[in-house]
Design a protein around this nucleic acid. Sequence first.
DNA 1: TATCATGATTAGAT
DNA 2: ATCTAATCATGATA
Length: 362
Amino acid sequence: MDEQARILQALGGVNLAGHSVQGGMALPPPHGHDGSDVDGRKQDIGDILHQIMTITDQSLDEAQAKHRKHGLNCHRMKPALFSVLCEIKEKTGLSIRGAQEEDPPDPQLMRLDNMLLAEGVSGPEKGGGSAAAAAAAAAAGSPTDNSIEHSDYRAKLSQIRQIYHTELEKYEQACNEFTTHVMNLLREQSRTRPISPKEIERMVNIIHRKFSSIQMQLKQSTCEAVMILRSRFLDARRKRRNFSKQATEILNEYFYSHLSNPYPSEEAKEELAKKCSITVSQGVGTTITVAQVSNWFGNKRIRYKKNIGKFQEEANLYAAKTAVTAAHAVAAAVQNSQTNSPTTPNSGGYPAPCYQSDGRIQ
DNA sequence: TATCATGATTAGAT
DNA sequence: ATCTAATCATGATA
């Protein structure tokens, strides 16, 4: 860690003009040390060190810089300095530090990646987004108009997608530029001080990690944007449509005729959903899903229970209704075959408008 | 426009 | 998993 700081410090003294990364790539601030762990070196060496550190300063005068570099490289003390630096390095054990932590794949980053992929932002091409959106809409149980709102949603999503990709590209490019820049610097410096390939590699790793953390920010904010977009367009609550009269009729019929146990089985729900969807198949399909039937019964049960009085009238109405149809059925049955015993199957026949006195359902 | 009705979502219990 | 209860957001209506 100390060494990294030192390397970064050395870089910090270099003019990185033109390589500023938007959002601020925060290199660790220079540490307290100043590069001379060993004291008592001559002023001469100090000067040379300083020159090394600042050698790539892109001074206005390129020729002058060249001259200085050349001067340094041909300095009579250079070989001696080099070996001294090697020795220092050897002693302080800087050169041998195993390649530590192979960074494990950040779980959060993976989460973000997965989501972006699922949302169709980072996926293959335009098809993915709409498919995911459609799936999401279907899952949310709002199968109605996914044409008008949907195209709007898709447009916005592709906008986000585009921004995301251009930004990503920018980061990628900046990262590469910066990396080559640093590599060049190190290569330059390796002529006057010992730099192992491992160090360079580590340096590159550090840079990449920094950039990937920036990328993560980008992914994070993109995810947020997508979530907002989704909640804005895909949240079924925002485009609630009341069921058709016939659909509510069917559902209410079932509810009040099973008042003592208004919990339709899965099959019953499917049946009801189908029946509701069939009604008035005019216009854009008002298909009702099983999930919606479940929602309806959930709401109905709780609301009925909460205020039975309010639903008295409705209950009577539907009770009468089913009574009439049942009576007809019974009459028909009686007329058709005497052997048929007309005991109605479900939970005690058509219930007269009778309610549990304690207000509880089941 | 205030208010109720209603479909969907959510947390938490079972 | 499915249900309840509370809540949200919108539709319908007075």
